[in-house]
């Protein structure tokens, strides 16, 4: 049997009491903490001893020696500190001792101070996420696209989880175990990872660009699509709303056609001097072509932008 093991459990800040309970249960079973973390912890099998654990979130420590000395004096052994500022302590367990011996924040004021530090951090994150979500929602209403929806779906569960965490950690009965919460937090973070990956993939595969042309025609170009002059083509990787802008300056009225790979006209722009911006079109996956048609001849200058 291996005498070390690693466990994987997600503990949110407001689940710190659950984490303490789990560490105590591991110690009762002979597994003593070597290194604690919010996702993964390492244990060593030492059945001859038993500890009680505590977690502290002291914020910025001005005087580390003073901090550790106060814990050491009361019999606490410092185990480790996580990158996000949680400190793990343990003390040999005596079942006959007063349970208060195994508490580190012994009044409501100091418990509030500890949770308040996390609430401050969580609050800043929640405000940033809330503002970002508001901007994304406005953008989505104005210019709906899958990639924005993915970002909203990535952020929204985490944002709600964060707000819920801020409410829970400030509750009077915060020390009561919140069962199964870690699973939901894990699901929120998984949703974030999945939808954020979706956003990155959609953004990377979304065609965008600008096509410009300028020429002089002595002959006319007929109005028939079959004889139209092709001047640009692009590929659409996935169906979505796309935003087209066109700037035409020509000596005579002309038509710009957007055709799909089945040679169906998807959209038509007509005019002599015409400027259209952010025309929303639902384009399916496939090849698209831009063509000029129905032009009496002369000088023409066309700029086409796809977003």
């Amino acid at each position: 049997m291996k005498d070390t093991k690693r466990t994987y459990n997600f503990y949110s800040a407001w689940n710190w009491q659950q984490e303490i309970n789990d560490l105590n249960a591991q110690s009762d079973a002979g597994w003593q903490l070597m290194h604690g973390g919010m996702v993964s912890s390492r244990f060593k099998y030492q059945p001859g001893v038993c500890y009680r654990y505590q977690l502290d979130y002291p914020g910025k420590i001005d005087e580390m020696p003073r901090y550790l000395e106060l814990f050491r004096d009361q019999g606490w052994e410092f185990v480790n500190r996580t990158a996000n500022g949680w400190y793990y302590f343990r003390k040999p367990y005596d079942p006959a001792a007063d349970p208060a011996e195994y508490e580190i924040n012994t009044d409501r004021a100091s418990l509030n101070e500890m949770t308040g530090r996390w609430v401050k951090l969580g609050g800043i994150l929640a405000v940033i996420m809330g503002l970002l979500l508001a901007v994304l929602l406005i953008l989505f209403v104005l210019r709906p696209m899958w990639q924005e929806l993915c970002l909203i779906l990535a952020l929204l569960p985490t944002f709600i989880m964060l707000l819920r965490g801020i409410v829970l950690i400030r509750r009077e009965d915060v020390k009561r175990t919140i069962r199964h919460d870690g699973r939901w937090v894990g699901i929120c973070l998984l949703a974030f990872a999945v939808f954020y990956t979706g956003f990155v993939l959609l953004a990377a595969n979304r065609p965008s660009g600008q096509w410009n042309r300028r020429s002089d025609y002595t002959d006319t170009i007929s109005a028939e699509a079959e004889t139209a002059v092709e001047w640009a083509q692009f590929e659409i990787g996935y169906p979505d709303n796309y935003y087209l802008s066109l700037d035409v300056k020509a000596d005579a009225p002309m038509t710009v056609l957007l055709m799909n790979e089945k040679d169906e006209v998807v959209h038509t722009f007509t005019g002599e001097v015409k400027k259209e911006e952010d025309v929303r079109l639902w384009l399916k996956k496939g090849q698209y072509r831009l063509l000029l048609a129905d032009f009496a001849g002369g000088s023409e200058e066309v700029a086409f932008t796809l977003n």
């Binding site: 901090y67 814990f71 011996e101 101070e113």
Partner: peptide, 16 residues
Amino acid sequence: DGEVKIGSGTMYGATG
């Protein structure tokens, strides 16, 4: 008389 116990976390915050 054993009514009040000051834990290390409380002590550090209070003295600070």
